[in-house]
């Protein structure tokens, strides 16, 4: 009987946890780039086939000897990715080359996404099982990695890139030249 009575309070406890989660979402300010354990490490070896017709796929060798580039992990199904698309275009316009890895996606969906939100990518790799994403130490979508010309990760940006993140990324990109 005792246990049953304690169990009856469980919904309230769960609800309290839920409220705390939601409340922190309201109170906390939004994203910032984080320094992660991946910075300073080499990009894991991978080769991805092309995601959309007319655009090459992506492999590790593309990041060696071609100057620093931004690798953006995205998905056409991901809403923050759509929100970040404009900022990637801006980075591209400022001279930062952007490469894409599409996670669990279909060619038609990616094409529709690019047609709708713009296409900053030089290459897009098809990571249908999120293998490269996991190897890069990325936990979700979107995420971006700045990789120097020698294939080393200089900066990991978790979450959508926003307008006020751009100066920091540009600075890191210039420093990696």
């Amino acid at each position: 009987m005792k246990v049953r009575h304690i169990l009856l309070w469980l919904p309230l406890v769960l609800f309290a946890v839920l409220m705390i989660v939601v409340a922190t979402g309201v109170i906390r300010p939004n994203t910032h780039a984080v320094r992660s354990h991946m910075t300073g490490k080499p990009v894991p070896a991978f080769t991805l086939s092309p995601m959309v017709p007319g655009k090459p796929g992506l492999s590790t060798t593309d990041f060696i000897g071609h100057g620093p580039r931004l690798l953006n992990v995205f998905g056409s199904w991901c809403v923050p990715c759509a929100a970040e698309a404009g900022e990637l275009q801006k980075l591209k316009a400022l001279g930062v080359p952007v490469e894409g890895v599409a996670i669990r996606d279909k060619p038609q969906d990616v094409q529709a996404f690019l047609a709708r939100y713009g296409d900053p990518y030089d290459r897009i790799g098809d990571d249908s099982r999120a293998r490269v994403q996991l190897a890069m130490g990325s936990s979700g979508v979107p995420e971006s990695f700045l990789i120097d010309g020698k294939g080393r990760i200089v900066l990991q940006h978790i979450g959508a890139i926003r307008a006020d993140d751009i100066p920091g990324i540009i600075a890191a990109w210039k420093a990696a030249q």
Partner: peptide, 8 residues
């Protein structure tokens, strides 16, 4: 987001 990340 509670950990400073925006994901979907």
């Amino acid at each position: 987001q509670g950990f400073g990340v925006q994901l979907s």
